[in-house]
Design a protein around this nucleic acid. Sequence first.
DNA 1: TAGATTGTTAATCGATTAACAATC
DNA 2: TAGATTGTTAATCGATTAACAATC
Lengths: 217, 217
Amino acid sequence: MKDLKDISASVIGRLPRYYRFLCELSQAGTVRISSGELSQRMGLTASQIRQDFNCFGGFGQQGYGYNVEQLKKEMASILGLDDLTPAILMGAGNLGRAVASQMRFEEMGFSLVGIFDIDPTYRGMKLGGVPILQNDALPAFCLEKRPKMAILCVPLDQAAALVDELILLGLDSFWNFSHFDIHAKYPQANVTNVHLSDSLMTLSYSIKNSNGGSRNA
Amino acid sequence: MKDLKDISASVIGRLPRYYRFLCELSQAGTVRISSGELSQRMGLTASQIRQDFNCFGGFGQQGYGYNVEQLKKEMASILGLDDLTPAILMGAGNLGRAVASQMRFEEMGFSLVGIFDIDPTYRGMKLGGVPILQNDALPAFCLEKRPKMAILCVPLDQAAALVDELILLGLDSFWNFSHFDIHAKYPQANVTNVHLSDSLMTLSYSIKNSNGGSRNA
DNA sequence: TAGATTGTTAATCGATTAACAATC
DNA sequence: TAGATTGTTAATCGATTAACAATC
């Protein structure tokens, strides 16, 4: 078991996928799994799986393997899925609407408590059961509901000023779909970027520079 | 200049961001840039930037640096942005609609030639100027338009059969928003995955296991 | 020419894989 | 007990950083 601060981004990046496979195994009624069997299903080495798990403690038993249900719970706990962080969605455009209506936030460690847009035409509408408010209602809302995380689905030119405001209102975490570099300006913030255009260009590279058979991300 | 096959995923993953910064520099009218200055703006080391660029050939000039316009064009060419790959969108739900209307495909090496959904209620609608067709029109469409890439915005339970069909219809590349593991079944295919829920769980981890200041992706 | 900056090789660092003793 | 499989250390591999000669 390592100090949590020492755990590399590579390991952390694999945790959701472990969790996903464990959920599937659990649903299928599988009681135990060895690192060897899991490695085959996931296309990883058994060594890597054991190393990864042992960053967080010894969840297995020699000669037996891992108990699926227990390991799944451990993963959920490590990922912080049990403890719901209040989050707001900024921007109710196409992408914002997709995110709000598609993601099962409560299964991923968040609860969506508010949706905001500058455009008043959205007023009164709801997404995933959450009403859309206008940006000018943001300060009062934050004072009351204390959201900690913001999902940034706004155009780049609005992002900088908006992040400034959100930081002032006490938010410190961002799921960032814009290309604004939050981390550069606020190194203290927790930021996970989703750069769809970067992802698509990576695919373009694969298609045009390979003779087939590449996987990214 | 290395063999293109030897270029690591780490390097490829940084190319779109290089391209993005070069576009900004170009728009700002900057004529030349050194690896040192670019490294400061991007938060990378100058060494890494020079190493990355030199995977593809020597674009710079000693004592001068890099010509922004030339380097930008080289990047576009490496990423294959000049050559438009015909692509179809499978699934016109929230996410599919967001992707179709938001992404500037022509600037990223693709052209969106068709949109398909099993639900007939979408019939006659358009997204980003492209009409939505029903899935049963797919074989004839592919025979005529020869799309090469599919954007997969369908539920997991439909993905497996759909990928089988698309492969048979001659597609070999996927921008995959589902959790179906295309690469496991078709190792020859070009696949770039976008796993939004994995990304969100990574943020949950950061929030709950750090005292602030983490960046992912 | 002198100064700047690349291209490239060497050194370091970190992540992955292999090996195996511990132990259920 | 014997067989299986972990936890963990050691070896390997690859990616990043540093250094510097080449050269514009």
